[in-house]
Design a protein around this nucleic acid. Structure first.
Lengths: 235, 235
DNA sequence: GATTGTCGTTGATCTGGATCAAAACGGTAC
DNA sequence: GTACCGTTTTGATCCAGATCAACGACAATC
């Protein structure tokens, strides 16, 4: 199935709420590009040539430390964008991006998009809102890493990424190693933490990729900093 | 000395680049308010009533964990704004803010500011740019905390906060405990880390608040992840 | 089939920075 | 002056999570 730029952009959360006319103006700039699995899309420090909107597939946006350690900032799924900030601020790419699966994106060239922003108030307004949300997400991530311990972060992640309807069982959309990196944990710690949550009866691991939530409220509590309980202490 | 809303807003980096007319429109909304030292400006979770622009003084914007630990997101100095994101996205305050010294702010009421955004394209454009910068700052902070160790973070902080001209000696604009919290370190660790840098000959501590940079390049290297050297190893 | 590679789990050990404890500094109030 | 209070510094100890190491489960390639 082929995707057109318009179809992809219509589902893009950054442009949600945009009227058809403005959406068409944005679409005119768009060029649909495919990236094969493992293909590098851009590297940090490069000039950023476009804003990317994912139509199909999965993109890992990550930064690597001088030490070699890397940190996943964002796993961009269909409907999500990346490199917005670099494009808007006319900055260098702050991170690396690569396709985790075969991926289709709409590219909105930086200079033309910036020009559209300058002429079209609706698009501009929409973007302000989108950026505000993205910023809040970042602050959330930051506070997660800074203020919560491993169990809290994992519990919070599970709650956030469970689908809103039928939240009992869900399939992780990304590999655990990427989840771990996103939460600033090692794979090992993530694995052990999931086991602790399972042993405490809060979740159940169906298989490597599937998690069933057994006790939503308790999970909420753990995410809010309460200790896990339901273990050791052989009174 | 009394400050007017217009004077404060003119020096505000979020509105830098705004033409006089638009600036005047923004200024019309503004109400100048003083906050005494230690006064709480808002608490996380509250409805956010305005965008704040600091004219004089210093405001600590911080979040506290369920555990009681707190994290300084931002020490807002004159010319800087806070609560922009909450106002723009019509979200609840994501953090606490309190005046560290006697402080003067311009308040731009949320609803009226949002209405201005909707009607004035120039202000909207300016804001997109401001948000992009703020986002990049946040990503930097996140990567700092996640990818660097204590020495790297402290070295980076010193480099960032040294004045661009005459960077040899400078006075910390905020208390060390706030610096520590911002970098997600304890006061103790910050103190020890500064001592290590001093012993390695990269900096010199004049007094509690003043730091002299002795070796700019080496400090850069440490911030980029190289080990500090110049210690132990009694060959 | 065998081989290689990536991912996930589990166990044993190590360590950077936190925590606890105490003392040295300024301020400022009396 | 002395007493008090918040900040900073230093030292001793502790611990959550990293690191190292081994192994099983698949999937892809030969």
């Amino acid at each position: 199935m082929e995707l057109t730029a318009a179809q992809i952009l219509r589902k893009c959360s950054l442009f949600r709420g945009l009227d058809d006319l403005s959406l068409a103006l944005v679409g005119e700039l768009g060029r649909v590009v495919e990236f094969a699995k493992d293909r590098v899309i851009f590297r940090q420090g490069q000039e950023c040539e476009a804003l990317y909107c994912v139509g199909r597939g999965l993109v890992r946006v990550y930064k690597v430390a001088p030490s070699g350690k890397d940190h996943v900032l964002h796993m961009a799924q269909p409907g999500q964008t990346f490199a917005e900030v670099a494009v808007i601020g006319d900055l260098l790419c702050p991170a690396n991006a690569e396709a985790v699966e075969d991926t289709v994106c709409v590219l909105l060239p930086a200079d033309r998009f910036r020009r559209l922003l300058e002429t079209n108030h609706r698009v501009c307004l929409q973007l302000v809102e989108g950026l505000a949300l993205w910023t809040r997400h970042l602050v959330g991530l930051l506070e997660d890493v800074v203020l919560r311990d491993a169990v809290g972060r994992v519990a919070g992640y599970i709650l956030r990424s469970a689908p809103h309807e039928r939240p009992e069982a869900f399939t992780l959309p990304v590999l655990k190693k990427d989840v771990a990196s996103h939460l600033n944990l090692t794979r090992e710690t993530l694995s052990r933490t999931l086991r602790r949550l399972a042993e405490a009866g809060l979740i159940e691991t169906v298989d490597a990729q599937q998690i069933r939530i057994l006790d939503h409220a308790a999970l909420r509590d753990v995410a809010d900093g309460l200790p896990v309980g339901e273990f050791d202490e052989p009174r």
